[in-house]
């Protein structure tokens, strides 16, 4: 029974590339929901087109990493336009319905056998990292990061992933303190008031949808770099976890999504490590280790409920700017 590794494993979740990926996806949702008031329930779809755009353009068309990256982003922009053009003139709930449906359509298109030659269908895709790893400037070998030892590829991914998180945070900060951000926050509260002041609300909502969607695509690419592309990873539950992260950190904040993602993954790791070990040593005799793997989500759910009940504005949010509780 190794309780010490439970905590070192959990602590690594603070900086793991997956945490960075979820932080990026949550920052995209912060732009959509937190700042603009757009109910995007299909962030998993944006992540999927980013990930598949990257993998397919590499494997099928032999694109180098940078062209593959641009393909993933372009795919998310196209998805944002397809979703936005018909819905952004309508009431807010239409976007919610359309995005959740579209994200499922995207996932099912990647899962179906019809396009298996390109998408790998249910088995997914792998082997798209060669060009990406070839441009790794870090000499091959193992490196100590605090208490952890990681190879050059992981270190390179960590640098890029958190670099992207930093750039996204900087971009959101610059935008939201600008007159552009003022219009966006006005729209969140009452789009007719903003329209009456001569602002093209439709265009701003579209810009917001594209920006947050592109952040989702970056998140999808970062998410699949330490693993393979699996359609099952882009279920609607992914979107709900990202919403949980967003609300945990604070919906209309810069650092909320980042800290929210760190807390989410650390809690998840602690709970799964704990339940696995507890089952192992017979503390939970009524449970198999497979069931224990699911219990962590229940525990995370409870932890999130507690936080949202006692701090509805999230960790960083201001109560005065609560997007989902209007005064």
């Amino acid at each position: 029974m190794d309780w010490g590794s439970l905590f070192t494993n959990a602590a690594y979740e603070i900086i793991s590339p997956t945490t960075a990926a979820y932080a990026l996806a949550a920052m995209g949702l912060a732009v959509h929901f937190g700042y603009t008031g757009l109910l995007n329930f299909g962030q998993a779809g944006f992540m999927a087109v980013g990930a598949y755009g990257f993998a397919i353009s590499t494997l099928t068309f032999g694109f180098p990493w940078w062209a593959a990256l641009l393909t993933g982003i372009a795919a998310s922009v196209v998805l944002a336009l397809i979703l936005g053009i018909p819905t952004l003139r309508l009431r807010a709930d239409y976007l919610a319905i359309v995005t959740i449906a579209a994200a499922e359509i995207v996932r099912l298109l990647f899962t179906t056998n019809t396009f298996a030659a390109v998408t790998g269908s249910a088995a997914g895709l792998s082997g798209y990292k060669t060009s990406w790893q070839a441009m790794n400037p870090i000499p091959a070998g193992n490196y100590n990061i605090g208490p952890w030892v990681r190879d050059h590829n992981e270190v390179w991914l960590l640098i890029v992933a958190w670099g992207l998180v930093g750039l996204a945070a900087l971009l959101i900060w610059l935008l939201m303190r600008s007159p552009w951000g003022r219009v966006i926050k006005g729209i969140r509260e009452d789009e007719d008031a903003v329209r009456a002041l001569g602002k093209n609300v439709y265009s701003y909502k579209m810009q917001s949808l594209v920006l947050g969607g592109a952040m989702g695509a970056f998140a999808g690419m970062v998410f699949v770099l330490p693993r393979s592309v699996q359609p099952g990873n882009f279920q609607p539950t992914l979107t709900f976890f990202i919403y949980a992260i967003l609300l945990l950190g604070g919906a209309a904040t810069i650092f909320g999504p980042i800290i929210g993602s760190m807390i989410f993954w650390t809690l998840l790791s602690i709970f799964s490590g704990f339940t696995a070990r507890a089952v192992e040593i017979g503390w939970l005799p009524f449970m198999t280790s497979l069931q224990a793997g699911q219990v962590r989500f229940i525990l995370v759910g409870i932890a999130l409920m507690v936080i949202v009940i006692y701090r509805p504005q999230g960790i960083f949010g201001s109560k005065k700017e609560l997007a989902f509780v209007k005064q």
Binding site: L171, L174, L175, P179, G181, V183, L211
Partner: peptide, 9 residues
């Protein structure tokens, strides 16, 4: 001017 996306930055 600052209400344009790129100028805002």
């Amino acid at each position: 001017t600052g209400e344009g996306f790129f100028q805002a930055i």
